[in-house]
């Protein structure tokens, strides 16, 4: 829990249920000078002073050490329906994603896998995936049974209108089978080559198709294997570059490709990281998204709360060089 809050982690259900920060109501934090502070609490409404709970959530351990967390709980959904759609055209898949939401359905999960990923998963797990498909969507709606019925009908209609073919899981066993493909995505990609560089550049949902096409171009431009899967519903993609860190020449192309990915995501109105955080690897790119003025604000906050830079040095661009 501490790790999830400090990093503000997301996941498969972000579209409907949000991410960690949407559930954190209060925190107790030990500050760099040893003082203990409490922010937020158990009330749904709380506008007392600045929203420090949000500031510490996702601070990656750079502002204080979280020692107590108050979270909001929600009831587990009563029913769910899982569907699996295949597309022979990438933009059809992208249009289906936006079409579902336009038709007032917010699925709990709306996952996408591109062709490289589909082929790799099929090669690894042999579960009968259509390797000729350009994209697969895995869609799950959940909630009150009657509503779930109606939402599933809408989803199927949207898929058909966008030239997709759809399968619905009839029971838990079939649901597990459909999920097996998504669960196998990362392990399967990771088997192909020794080093896995997993990014999580995120774009607005309406730009999903554009981003997927851009990723294919970047893979071609740098002659790299990039498999992309991820949370299409919230625009959070995981382009996964398959490489070998011992291959210096290829690693240079990998770094160049990563830069292009960030550049494209930002140009589309997106962000460097949807859920993985900045850490050390992305800290050099902060200014691309926040500008100099934005980075200055971060530095001032850090300086105010941790003037000696003792908290998680080297992360998020703070106190770089403090750690060798």
């Amino acid at each position: 829990m501490g790790g999830s809050v400090a990093e503000c982690s997301g996941g498969l259900r972000g579209l409907k249920y949000g991410v960690t920060k949407h559930y954190v109501m209060g925190l107790e934090v030990v500050l760099a000078d040893g003082q203990v502070a409490r922010f937020g609490g158990k009330t749904v409404k709380n506008v007392t002073a600045l929203d420090m709970v949000k500031l510490f959530t996702g601070s990656e351990g750079t502002l204080g050490i979280i020692t107590e967390i108050i979270v909001r709980l929600i009831p587990a959904p009563e029913a769910r329906k899982t569907m699996f759609a295949t597309f022979s055209d990438l933009s059809d898949a992208g249009n289906a994603v936006t079409g579902i939401v336009k038709n007032k359905v917010i699925p709990a999960t709306l996952e996408i896998m591109d062709q490289v990923t589909i082929k790799t998963v099929e090669n690894y797990a042999k579960i009968g995936l259509p390797t000729e498909a350009r994209a697969i969507l895995l869609i799950e709606v959940d909630g009150i049974p009657e509503v779930v019925e109606r939402e599933a009908d809408t989803v199927m209609e949207v898929i058909k209108n966008n030239n997709g073919s759809i399968r619905m899981a009839r029971d838990d066993k079939e649901r597990d089978d459909l999920w097996a493909a998504r669960r196998a995505a990362l392990p399967a990609l990771a088997q192909v080559k020794p080093t896995t560089v997993l990014e999580d550049a995120t774009v607005p949902r309406s730009k999903i198709t554009e981003m997927l096409l851009a990723l294919e171009e970047i893979a071609q431009k740098y002659n790299l294997q990039i498999g992309t899967f991820g949370h299409a519903g919230d625009g959070n993609l995981h382009p996964t570059i398959l490489t070998d860190e011992r291959d210096k020449e290829e690693m240079e192309r990998v770094h160049a490709a990563v830069k292009d990915i960030f550049e494209k995501a930002l140009a589309l109105g997106g962000t460097l990281s949807g859920e993985h955080g900045i850490g050390m690897a992305k800290s050099g790119f902060l200014e691309w998204e926040l500008g100099k003025s934005g980075v200055d604000v971060l530095q001032k906050i850090k300086k105010a709360l941790d003037p000696e830079g003792i908290l998680n040095p080297g992360k998020m661009g703070f106190n770089r060089g403090a750690r060798k």
């Binding site: 790790g3 990771a190 020794p194 080093t195 896995t196 560089v197 997993l198 070998d244 860190e245």
Partner: peptide, 15 residues
């Protein structure tokens, strides 16, 4: 070595 460089440091092992 091949096992070592496969690790992408995600920390799923912590769980």
């Amino acid at each position: 070595e091949n096992e070592i460089i496969k690790c992408m440091k995600c920390g799923n092992c912590q769980a």
